[in-house]
Amino acid sequence: MARIIVVTSGKGGVGKTTSTAAIGAGLAMSGKKTVVIDFDVGLRNLDMILGCERRVVFDFINVIHGEAKLHQALVKDKRLENLAVLPTSQTRDKDALTRDGVEKVLDQLRDEYDYIVCDSPAGIERGAHMAMYYADDAVVVSNPEVSSVRDSDRILGLLSSKTRRAERGEEPVKAQLLLARYDPARVEKGEMLKVDDVLEILAIPLLGVIPESQSVLKASNLGMPVVLDESSNAGKAYLDAVKRLMGEQIEHRVLAPERRSFFQRLLGRTA
């Protein structure tokens, strides 16, 4: 029986899709059968980040509307045999998502996979609501700045009231914080919120801190989840987060600003 994880944030552009791809790939690398689903109907991106956009024939919405079978729409990842992607439609909008339709698809996937990772669209409207409704766990992605944190807080309120678990009075959705685009140097200068500041406001467990890194953008553009880049700090941080998500106790890495060497300072650029 799969666990359903929603990756959500409220605010746009904080790294939900990147995180979904990284978490999905990380789970698959750990040997878990994982499917990632794109709920951002009309703004289809997850398949691109995972580099399988050229193999999409049918999508999530086709399956919901009975125009295609689920196995026809699922795209298997070429690098990770345990990973599958259920892309969304670029031409439809969020109204195409129905509660019954989503449930039917999730029920079919539940038996076959260990983890179902739902990539939520930004906002708090239908798309985001449908993505979180059936979730068992939530990864709340936030950046160390006030508007993102406040939007995450809003999402936490919705997770505790607008999900199926909340409506049925079951054990609440387990929400954890993934703090992305964290730049220790800027935190030290006081330009970004500290991890502790964010945790104090949101009052949820910390799943991981992802450092701001060039490798994330590079990986996205190459269509390769950043966890596959062994040299990337962000990739390592995501892998740690994935292990914590699976219940392992992993110490948080110390996040200190990178010291620039004498020569780098002389040249006036970072490594």
Binding site: R150, D153, G157, L158, S160, S161, A203
Partner: peptide
Amino acid sequence: TEPVRSGQ
């Protein structure tokens, strides 16, 4: 007893 979230 729970945190009161933004928007609540």
